[in-house]
């Protein structure tokens, strides 16, 4: 009986900690989705590129992954801006039968990023080893991995900072205005094309941040991005499109359900749990968690 409770507690805590980092990645996606109204299927690939930047910093220059993160974020911000300006933005003016063109373009971008990385690093599994990678923290009889705790704290700090940025600064307010109503924002003098570019860059930078935090916990290989794309779009829908806090809570829910699913159902089915929840939310709670709060 005692053991069962310890197992449960550990599962819950690990799930929440992991979920905190997922939500950081998902917030990046939800920002892009809110402002540009597209599903960015290249998001996981951006996470992956960010992870590789940190990996290079760590292995070639001996920079700690948590400091490497601050190199990866500006790099990905710049990359995101370029992708938005020269690729996705072009499609806004193009006339086509299916509006899903932009989604497909992000698939193309995903392919290019993944294969570009594969060309340089091969498909090998890599990992960054730090002195504290395998350290554990004990709460009673429950053991919790240290990188998980650090990652969660940094992720929450970033979420809070982002929230302040979006609600208090002029640039943040412009981003929210563009997300709410692009035309109205343009009439109010918001430079919407600049805002869109910055938003995509910001989304990419957040993806890089989340990736860097997860780097000590995951193996790194070019295809790791797919995993994060799937998770973050589930979280985004769960939280309600374009809602920062929704995504943060959605991340925790997904982390928790995955962790519980892995412990109590089976490792293989843990991803099914998330997907089934995703479809249920789409059907019965289309506004996501945000709509529950508003009610």
């Amino acid at each position: 009986m005692e053991d069962a409770w310890i197992k449960f507690g550990q599962t819950v805590i690990c799930g929440i900690l992991l979920g905190g980092m997922y939500s950081l990645i998902a917030i990046g996606m939800t920002l892009i989705m809110g402002v540009m109204k597209i599903v960015n299927l290249a998001h996981g690939a951006l996470v992956m590129v960010g992870m590789y930047v940190v990996y290079i910093c760590a292995t070639n220059y001996g920079i700690d992954p948590y400091i490497g993160m601050f190199i990866a974020m500006p790099v990905l911000f710049f990359l995101g801006c370029l992708i938005q300006k020269y690729m996705i933005n072009r499609l806004v003016e193009v006339d086509s039968i299916l509006p899903e063109n932009q989604v497909l373009l992000t698939v193309g971008i995903m392919l290019v990023l993944t294969e570009g990385i594969r060309l340089f690093f091969k498909s090998d599994y890599r990992s960054v080893v730090t002195s504290y990678s395998s350290d554990t923290l004990y709460i009673g009889a429950m053991s919790i991995s240290v990188p998980l705790v650090i990652g969660f704290i940094i992720a929450m700090a970033f979420t809070f900072l982002l929230h302040m940025f979006l609600t208090k600064s002029d640039l943040g307010k412009s981003i929210r205005a563009t997300a709410q109503d692009r035309d109205a924002a343009i009439f109010m003098g918001v430079n919407s094309s600049k805002i869109t570019m910055i938003t995509f860059g910001l989304g990419a930078a957040l993806a890089a941040a989340g990736g860097s935090l997860l780097l000590p916990l995951f193996y790194l290989f070019p295809d790791v991005g797919h995993l994060f794309t799937a998770k973050s779009f589930i979280i985004t829908i769960l939280g309600g499109l374009g809602s920062t806090w929704g995504a943060a809570i959605g991340g925790l829910v997904i982390g928790l359900s995955e962790s519980l699913g892995a412990t109590y159902i089976s490792m293989g089915y843990k991803d099914v749990v998330g997907l089934v929840m995703f479809i249920l939310v789409l059907l019965f709670l289309p506004g996501g968690i945000r709509s529950l709060v508003k009610r």
Binding site: V94, L105, G108, M110, L111, V112, E115, R118, L119
Partner: peptide, 25 residues
């Protein structure tokens, strides 16, 4: 060789950007 999928991906991007309705379209 090993760059084939990369070139393929670049091509996909170019097609969607410049031929959004496909060749027949």
């Amino acid at each position: 060789g090993s760059a084939n999928v990369l070139v393929f991906g670049v091509l996909v991007c170019l097609i969607i950007m410049f031929l959004p309705n496909g060749i027949a379209g």
